[in-house]
């Protein structure tokens, strides 16, 4: 039954992730960390980082991982299928009526709205990650971790030219090295 509830949960995300996987980040955070507390904010961040590093769509990777944590192989199959089902059905339906919505004002406006939502969702992901990496709220006051701030700044500057996977692996090496000091 865990598999069935995972399938339904990811069906919802599949319906809501327009135009890219980043939409899923705040949605999953609200459900997994805030509502059910299956994960701590930090381990949620780690999970997303691993999904970024491995090949394939970020949200498929995340769905597989979350499913695996809760119900091993069947869980990951259920979660990933849930994520893909709405897309698959709608795509087949829409492809059969391709000319119906082309150049309609509501369709163009809808697309604009999707871009808006994508912008807001990535901002919310930025806030989320700031809380679990650079900013430290542990003792009631805000502390800024300088090493992490540095890594963040370098990542911003290099993100245009260096592939994300390389950046993530490099910072993993830095962290690994620093831990021996």
């Amino acid at each position: 039954m865990i598999a069935l509830s995972l399938f339904l949960q990811f069906l919802k995300y599949g319906l809501l992730c327009f135009g890219g996987g980043y939409m899923i980040i705040p949605l999953l955070y609200a459900d997994l960390v805030e509502k059910t507390s299956t994960l701590t904010p930090e381990s949620y961040g780690n999970l997303l980082a691993v999904s970024q590093m491995t090949p394939g769509a970020v949200s498929v990777n995340t769905a597989t991982y979350v499913g695996f944590m809760q119900d091993s192989v069947w869980g990951s199959i259920a979660a990933t299928l849930g994520l893909c089902t709405p897309t698959f059905i709608l795509c087949v339906i829409i492809l059969s009526f391709l000319n119906f919505y082309k150049n309609k004002p509501w369709a163009i406006g809808f697309l604009k709205g999707i871009k808006w939502a994508a912008f807001i969702m990535i901002l919310s992901a930025v806030i989320l990650f700031a809380k679990i990496s650079v900013l430290d709220f542990s003792n009631g006051s805000i502390k800024i971790n300088l090493l992490e701030l540095g890594i963040m700044a370098v990542a911003i500057c290099l993100a245009k030219k260096v592939p994300f996977t390389v950046l993530l692996l490099l910072s993993a090496c830095i962290g690994w090295g620093v831990s021996y000091l």
Binding site: E42, V126, I132, V134, V154, A159, L167, L168, S179
Partner: peptide
């Protein structure tokens, strides 16, 4: 198993990875 990491080196590595993801997200935003 990412949900309960205990290795100190891995924890520090992931701390830095999260900072890097933050940087990448700021760039994307």
């Amino acid at each position: 198993p990412l949900e309960n990491l205990s290795n100190l080196h891995l924890l520090q590595a992931f701390q830095c990875i999260r900072a890097c993801v933050l940087g990448v997200f700021i760039f994307l935003a």
